[in-house]
């Protein structure tokens, strides 16, 4: 018995070394296997807990009818819009608060206050103001993305050693050029972390908002499926959420982090 397990283990190790992408899939294999076994044993009725095969079939059907690609695109576009405004507003605001003691005194309490109100706590009033639709969803996601970006940018700006600024000034760098040459790159590792957190929270807030006020998107897909009593589609939605985030994080955010803070030795691995 033991040598067999060892053999399988060493086979898996060699396999993941050869194909690194298998390494990221491997952890899910036991979970899917367990899920499959539970459904095959018919412990719960099929309508309550469909198996992996049912979900794959449902995926094929929704892709075929065009519903899923459309909803997927809607959700992704909303995330991208949220990310864009979160960056465009959050980074300059964070740099201002990080650099200017006066701005810090004036804005920091406000930032903490509004951060505490948090994404979907705004929904009731936003629905009254803007109704069910895109504006409401955009406000919620921008709101959610922006705080982690601002707070981490402030932290990043404030953690730049004073010697960096002194060195730049002694080499003839003006205060305005300092922004681009020292402040922004010095704070960048923290900014990326803020963005990573912000998008993570924003993604969740977006799905929640789609469930509550949406007319399309992955969140809406899941809510609609609940109305129709289709557990398969709910499960499908949940799986898509996980996969999508995994892709955004490991294909976009993690490489940026590796190319900046880690390369520069500012972040220890």
């Amino acid at each position: 018995m033991k040598p067999v397990i060892l053999n399988i283990w060493s086979f898996l190790v060699r396999l993941t070394a050869r194909f690194p992408s298998i390494g990221s899939i491997a952890p899910f294999i036991p979970i899917v296997a367990a899920w499959w076994i539970v459904t095959e044993l018919q412990i719960f009725p099929r309508v309550f807990l469909p198996g992996p095969g049912d979900v794959v079939r449902s995926f094929g059907l929704l892709v075929y009818t065009g519903v899923l690609p459309e909803y997927l695109q809607d959700s992704m576009v909303r995330l991208a819009v949220g990310a864009f405004w979160g960056i465009a507003l959050g980074i300059p605001l964070g740099i201002l608060v990080g650099l200017s003691q006066r701005a810090h005194t004036a804005l920091w309490p406000l930032l903490l206050f509004f951060q505490a109100i948090g994404d979907i706590a705004w929904l009731p009033i936003l629905v009254i103001w803007f109704g069910y639709g895109l504006v409401t969803m955009t406000v919620v996601i921008v709101y959610t993305v922006i705080f982690p970006v601002v707070l981490n940018t402030v932290l990043g700006v404030r953690s730049i050693p004073i010697t960096m600024e002194r060195a730049a000034r002694s080499l003839g760098c003006s205060r305005t050029r300092m922004l681009w040459e020292v402040v922004l790159p010095g704070a960048l590792p923290n900014i990326v972390t803020g963005l990573r957190n912000g998008l993570g929270y924003g993604w969740r807030a977006l799905i929640a908002t789609e469930i509550i006020v949406g007319t399309s998107g992955i969140g809406f897909l899941m809510f609609d499926a609940r109305r129709a009593g289709s557990v398969v589609e709910i499960l499908l939605g949940m799986i898509i959420l996980g996969i999508l985030w995994y892709i955004v994080d490991s294909w976009i955010l993690a490489p940026i982090e590796r190319a900046t803070g880690q390369r520069w030795g500012l972040v220890t691995r």
Binding site: T163, A167, R169, S170, L171, E181, P185, G265, L266
Partner: peptide, 27 residues
């Protein structure tokens, strides 16, 4: 501070986000 007085720091104070060449070319 000004470029008429160059400073070498005990803690080096190189810009970590710039290559060695870019650091030296900064002034």
């Amino acid at each position: 501070p000004g470029p008429d007085r160059g400073v070498v720091f005990q803690s080096f104070a190189l810009f970590p986000w710039k290559t060695v060449l870019e650091n030296v070319a900064f002034g």
